[in-house]
Computed example of a mutant assay.
Amino acid sequence: MVVFPWRESGYCVEQFIVTATETSTQVAVNPVRARTISQDEGCSGVGSDGVTAGDYLRLEEPLGNRTVVRAQGGRRFEVRAR
C-alpha cells in the first residue's frame, strides 16, 4: 500500500491511480493521481484522518530486494512488510 497526503475527510474506493516503473533493481512510484468519481459510479466511502490516504500498488513482479523510490526526485520510500 502506498500512503500519501490527503487533506479531505474521506475518499472513494478506486478513486486513486497508483502506478510505478519497474526494473530488476528498483520500483519508481509515480505521483498518485485522484480521479473524479462520476455520479453513475457511486462511492463506497472510506474514512480518512484528514492527513493521509492510501491505495494499493500492484507490481508486475514480487518486490524482492528492489529499492522503492519516488519517480520524481528519487527519494527512497520506507517499505514495511505485512
Rank of each mutant, 00 (worst) to 15 (best):
E41V: 11
R75P: 02
E22T: 09
R70P: 01
E61R: 15
P31H: 01
P62A: 14
V32C: 13
F16W: 06
T36M: 07
G64K: 05
P31I: 05
S38D: 13
R58L: 14
S48L: 03
Q26K: 14
E60S: 10
A20H: 07
R82V: 05
V79I: 14
G50H: 11
G47L: 13
R82C: 01
R66M: 07
E78D: 11
P31K: 02
C43A: 09
A34Y: 08
A81W: 06
G45L: 11
W6P: 09
G73E: 11
T67Q: 09
R33N: 14
D40V: 11
E61I: 02
V68E: 01
R82I: 01
T23A: 04
S48I: 04
V13I: 14
D55P: 11
V2Q: 10
Q72A: 06
L63K: 05
A34T: 10
L63T: 04
C12F: 02
A20Q: 06
G50S: 09
G74L: 08
G50V: 00
P31R: 00
V51T: 12
R35I: 12
G64R: 05
F4E: 08
E61V: 02
G42L: 08
T23K: 04
Y11Q: 03
R70W: 05
E22V: 03
E41L: 14
G47D: 07
D40G: 10
L63H: 01
Q72C: 02
F16K: 10
V68C: 00
A53V: 09
V51H: 07
D55Y: 09
R70D: 07
Y56A: 12
E60W: 02
Q26A: 06
M1Q: 08
D40W: 06
E22Y: 00
E22K: 07
Q39H: 13
R58M: 04
V68S: 01
G73M: 04
E60L: 00
M1V: 05
V32P: 15
A53Y: 07
G73Q: 03
V27G: 04
P62C: 10
Q15C: 02
V2R: 06
V3G: 11
E61F: 06
G45W: 15
V3A: 03
S44N: 11
V79N: 01
F16T: 15
T19E: 13
T25M: 12
A20I: 08
N30C: 13
R35T: 01
T67I: 12
W6F: 06
T25G: 08
A71F: 10
F4C: 03
V69C: 00
T36V: 15
P31A: 02
M1F: 04
V27Q: 01
V18R: 07
Q39M: 09
V3C: 02
V2E: 00
G47R: 15
V13L: 15
T52P: 00
